[in-house]
């Protein structure tokens, strides 16, 4: 038989474990809330598909799910292009500046985010690589504060990165938001193709009396 290890937890260890569990739960709760927010935003973006295909569907110009999907795809693509041209131009401008910088300095290994001649010169940068160290004597782990490597300052060599990085960040985030809308509208079109032409009898009951038409509200 193998040796049994007795795990003894001190009070301090128990507290640490409980705190870690709470942290994990809170992290997952936050992820859940964030995910719900993303889903709500996608439903809101998907409503635009209804606006784009509304008149054609109501006037019964499209009469099959296939026709509705095809028309919705065309309208969706056009709307995506109308929305996406600004972020695409921003990303293109950022790329052009990067190419020009590489041509000027004759180096194609340039990282625009570094803290020496990049966008990092404008930020506080800490070294997290040496937080945990071993003590010279005894056992255990020493936890140290991270070392401050860089304080914000202006660097003339990094001027290209001051334009490249904002163009990439703003253009990239904006483009992904629009791509999310494109995905949302596509999903909405697939859902509408089923519901608009649905011949479900779920809530239909033939024994219920037919409601009389209210003549007061009819248009004379």
């Amino acid at each position: 038989m193998g040796t049994l290890f007795l795990i003894k937890l001190s009070e301090n260890d128990k507290r640490i474990i409980i705190a870690l569990l709470f942290a994990i739960i809170i992290i997952f709760v936050l992820i859940g809330l964030l995910g719900s927010l993303v889903i709500r935003v996608m439903k809101w973006q998907g409503k635009k598909c209804d606006e784009l295909i509304n008149e054609v569907v109501i006037n019964r110009i499209v009469t099959t799910p296939h026709q509705l999907k095809a028309y919705a795809r065309k309208k969706n693509s056009r709307y995506f292009i109308k929305q996406a041209w600004i972020p695409v131009i921003l990303i293109t401008v950022g790329t052009l500046l990067l190419v020009i910088h590489n041509l000027v300095y004759k180096s194609w290994n340039y990282n625009p985010f570094n803290s020496k001649d990049g966008f990092g010169t404008l930020l506080f940068v800490w070294d997290f690589g040496h937080i945990f160290t071993k003590p010279e004597t005894g056992t255990g782990i020493l936890v140290n504060w991270p070392k401050l490597i860089n304080e914000p300052h202006f660097e003339a060599n990094a001027i290209f990165s001051y334009f490249i990085v904002p163009c990439y960040i703003v253009g990239g985030l904006w483009y992904f938001f629009i791509a999310q809308g494109y995905l949302a509208r596509t999903l909405r079109a697939h859902k509408l193709a089923k519901t608009v032409f649905d011949k479900s009898l779920d809530n239909y009951n033939q024994t219920t009396p037919i409601q009389e038409v209210n003549t007061e509200n009819t248009v004379q």
């Binding site: 739960i25 992290i27 997952f28 709760v29 936050l30 992820i31 859940g32 809330l33 964030l34 995910g35 719900s36």
Partner: peptide, 12 residues
């Protein structure tokens, strides 16, 4: 809170 935790797991 538990519902949000469950949703978080699914979303992960």
């Amino acid at each position: 809170l538990l519902k949000a935790f469950g949703k978080g797991l699914l979303y992960v």
